[in-house]
Design a protein around this nucleic acid. Sequence first.
RNA 1: AGUCUCGUAGCUCAGCUGGUUAGAGCACUACACUGAUAAUGUAGGGGUCGGCGGUUCGAGUCCGCCCGAGACUACCA
Length: 1093
Amino acid sequence: MFKEFKGLNLPQIDKEILEYWDNSQIFQKSIDQRDANQPFVFYEGPPSANGMPGIHHVMARAIKDIFCRFQTMKGKRVERKGGWDTHGLPIELSVEKELGITKEDIGKSISVEEYNDKCRETVMRYKDKWDAITKQMGYWVDLENPYVTYTNEYIESVWWLISQLYQKGLLYKGYTIQPYSPAAGTGLSSHELNMPNAYQEITDISAVAQFKVKGEVNTFILAWTTTPWTLPSNTALAVGKDIRYIKVHTFNRYTKEECFVILAKDRFSSYFSEQQPDLQPDQMKAGNQPIPYIEIVGEYTGRELEGIHYEQLLSYVIPEGKAFEVILGDFVTTSDGTGIVHISPTFGADDFKVAKLNGIAALTVPDVNGNPMPLVDKQGKFVSQVTDFAGRYVKDYGQKEERSVDTDITIKLKTENKLFVSEKYVHSYPHCWRTDKPILYYPLDSWFIKTSSLKERMVQLNQTINWKPASTGEGRFGKWLENLQDWNLSRSRYWGIPLPIWRSADAKEEICIQSIAQLKMEIDRANVALGIQQSVPADLHRPYMDEIILVSANGEKLFRELDLIDVWFDSGAMPYAQWHYPFENKEKFEQNFPADFIAEGVDQTRGWFYTLHAIGVMVFDSVAFKNVVSNGLVLDKNGQKMSKRLGNGIDPFSTIEKYGADATRWYMISNAQPWDNLKFDLSGIEEVSRKFFGTLYNTYSFFALYANIDQFKWSSAEVPLEKRPEIDRWVLSELNTLIHLVDTDYATYEPTNATRKIMEFVDENLSNWYVRLCRRRFWKGEMSEDKLAAYQTLYTCLNVVSRLMAPVAPFFADWLYRNLQEGALEKGPESIHLALIPVSDSGIIDHALEERMAYAQRISSLVLSLRKKEKLKVRQPLQKMLIPILNDNFEKQVEGVKDLILAEVNVKEIEYVSGAGNIIQKKVKPDFKSLGKKLGKNMKAVADALASLSQEEIQQIEKSGSFETSVSEEIIQLTREELDIVPVDIPGWLVATDAGLTVALDIQLSDELIAEGMARELVNRIQNIRKSSDFNVTDKIAIQLEALDFVKPAVEKYASYICSETLAEKLDVVEKGDGGEMLDLPEGEIWIKVTLS
RNA sequence: AGUCUCGUAGCUCAGCUGGUUAGAGCACUACACUGAUAAUGUAGGGGUCGGCGGUUCGAGUCCGCCCGAGACUACCA
């Protein structure tokens, strides 16, 4: 027996199937039963259990799950090791917040040890929630043996990778300009800079300074800056090599001194007004209005200006080395300022780079230890050497002062004939999220990986990766690789993997540790050399690692570099570290590298996707993954980002509990392509669950109901295809076409297309056409070959659909599959997830048949619309319909589905009208696609000519097979194949037309037709009575019907029809009696009595 | 600021390499059907395909600019 149900309850199905999976170890079996030599390698990007799982995690994980399940069903062994990302700033920040401390307190009011213990404890806070959502949504991943990034094994593997980079010479320590918060006394990560409200509008003084060219009289180069406080640190000026510059003769508006100033030609009009050849100094005004000038005296390219020396603008400190030269910078533009950029290597990232490239010195002073430091200290104050402004803050840190340093500097420049223009400038500037004070860009020491040196190889290997969507790989990721900067590995934090590098105090000697064994050896050596007792700590985190002192070959003490490794390196190391490679599992690793497939959100493009790729290329010269799906964001239904603040988040738990995991997953996948953002709307889930799951459930219920009545079991042999009726062969053809398409979609990572095609098949083909048209085959009569064919066909469809949908809707698919197993010919695997995806049999696909059926559907639809227009019920039979045919093939095709059409629209016969006669009115259109090239400009004229042809002329074309016209004296010959002749009307008939298909309907009613209509009407009413009387569909009945004239012809002629339709054993026409009920028929009321016999 | 994605009916989305009446589902309205029935069918309204320009005989589709939404990367002086 097939199980029958009272209604569809998806959450209930989830529960039952989950329990079943658990009890029967289905997930484990789905791996174990597959050939270990047929692996499909998947990497799980580790989530952080520090936060609650959200609905977007369900999205990302659904995608992962779909392809892993699909590949399992393709026979692949898909191991899925789970993982947890346990380090990183978000965790530290949340701990700080909870403890009510800041970074500066760590090591003071709380020991590093206590702090890290707290982090370790916090990081798995929501693990049980994550486990729960993983299970409830049906995401299969191995949570029993996950990799955890804070374990010693994981750390050891990371060290090994770092040491590999070190040995390849890819690791270096350098200083770069980084965001730094003087107020908080700490460097900031870019993550912190991207926090909400980090960028704030502030008003600064911008200044165009005059840099005096050496060896020329009164000639100045103009450079614009929004940070006048960096001017004392200026050591170079950058120009664009192809930008054109001009020299302008004018006067300084503050000092009235004559001057020649150089700036970009494109920027000229932003500063200067009209030419005044006889301009006098006292005409100059010190406002912001445009500046008059005398004349333009020269023009140069940037390249020509290169190498010009100029005098130091503010000489508080004299640099050591090359300085005060014009250099080329590719970042220079003419969209702002003067097209000439003031360079202060200590306070700008671009400045630093370009200065380094050109050998330009930075302006520094010695600090207390004699090491160079910039002219601004770490509190954000000028050092004493900048005498005029010593001790003053360069930005607004809440100090009380009359004027800002920037203002005072511009005043000083003004009086010294060094300022060309100054004005207020409003721009957005990054602020420290904690102190709300502006940050500085400040030189800080860091360890870097020289990723830039492997840029080409990374780009090259990236081209072999299949990105979904491709644009992310080429654009967002590819472009990013092309502009790759060195990877700043250092984090001056506490909870993370310590950098395994020890250095001597003078930085001359260093060692990079690659394993615990090596560490032990070095410790032992150091112990002997120093006569102390140290050992490898049980925990490889700070502070324990910091305490270890090693010894160099020369006997120098080596101290650990205090930095941690960027957490992104942790996750990028997972292909190796998850197996504790190379210390264990060498084979396992080799089998599982690179991954066949990974998937995460687009936000990981420069995160995990990048670090995986970078480490793979740098250490193994290989891609780390072959296929990658990057999904978009999950937004609320209005397209807003979900956030706690707006309260528009969707709780994944309650959603799944209410609608079931399958409907939720199906909705997310089918509604939009994964890489497009999803506007998440709960009503969309409802729609999917009604329209798709409801329909499929109904189809199964229908099948189960009748299969049980007929005791159908697929025990007998299959009815051969050629013995099945047209409609069976059709639906099986469509089914096999579907298999092929869906298989391809899954294989090419197009899950949305797969689900849409499955939905369309279930809705349109299976439910609304096959089942609807075949209903009576299931309920009529005893078991016959035709009936058996119907059962087998429907069974096959349901069975195949369950497999095709299994990757996306794992619960419902397994439920359906297992229900169907009750009547299987051969018992399949116990779960659908142990089964294989069906294989499309091209021998069953019959395109002509599919085309035929499409005609049947369209013709039926036309006839029904005509009936509708004339208010003729489908129950009322009609004599005939007319179909104009324009070629033999069409007639043959329609003839093949004639019975279906006639039954569907309740018409007795089809008459074909050949195109030759003049009954049909036609229209001619050119075949634009093929004629476009041939006709070109004349296309339109020809189309117009064809549109104005008379019926006779069209017939002439059909007869002769060609058409000739002239356009502007040019003769144009067209063949029949280049023209599209379609019927549009049959005068005198009731006609409907749709895209070249025309149907005419005869609506004359004979007495006979009326009688038959009445018979059907009666059948319909009697069925209703059966139903309202709660009779079983198999109960036999007896009917008494009042002898009224309008039913007599129907009963006389169609008694046996009525009886067989309604399972009546007796139909008596009698006088009105007791009981029974009154029927309301179009012709009047009639008494009827229906009883069980 | 740069890079990328997206913008088609009230809503969610199709629309392949350009081809002449721009489609589907939902929602709405009306009618029908009634042995799948909290289903189903038919019909209707609803679109300057974000805007402007260009290429072309022909543009939702190709190109340029702009506007809007979003993501990522960013001290452009």
